[in-house]
Amino acid sequence: MPYDASDSVVQLLDVSKEFMRDKIRIPVLTNTTLHIPKGDFAAIMGPSGSGKSTLLNLAAGLDRPTTGRVIVNGQDLGVLSEAGLSRFRSENLGFIFQMYNLMPVLTAFENVELPLLLAPLNRAQRRQHVEAALRIVSLADRQDHYPRQLSGGQEQRVAIARAIANDPVLLLADEPTGNLDATSAQEVLDLLELLNTQFGTTIIMVTHDPKAARRAKRLLHLEKGTFVQADIEALETSR
């Protein structure tokens, strides 16, 4: 389905990415073009090594394509310096990782506050943002707890609070339920759905889990570095 490019939060234009391993060129993405419109919730599936995480890293500006352009929220990431990319991420993006990636020595509150330290906010404003984010993930009462004092599901919810604390235009989730039991996974997916439907947050989620993918509005299937036809209904029937 064609998208209006001007409405896209993420555009990958003819993007290829190759890695060098022992002087051997390994293509991971090949001439890939992708438009993610504002308010979308896209799930990317595909076998290991199909380029899912690479695609996410490119959209996050954590890696640069070998050829092609990556445009996020109207900004061509290719023209930004390392410092510019850092600033861009802090202002526009939220990350959710499979292993939660919370700082073990910081409390839930302090973890959520981290990205806000880069924003022009005073202490009171930061507190407001953190408390609001923790309320959304229903962990307001656990703000003084350290990650080791939380369950896996709770840790991931804190990580989601951290990802949304600075009100990003794009949320990038890399296997957000990959490390969780079924109940916790459900809670996390409920949250992502809520963020997408109620707050209009654009989400790209890489997942292996068909149940998780079904919660997305759109399913993209990567194989050997190229998108192949896939849709949610097909996923439904395949199960």
Partner: peptide, 13 residues
């Protein structure tokens, strides 16, 4: 991994 996370959150070099 913590360093990678901090960088991805936007903390510069």
């Amino acid at each position: 991994r913590e360093i990678g996370t901090l960088r991805s959150l936007g903390f510069g070099r």
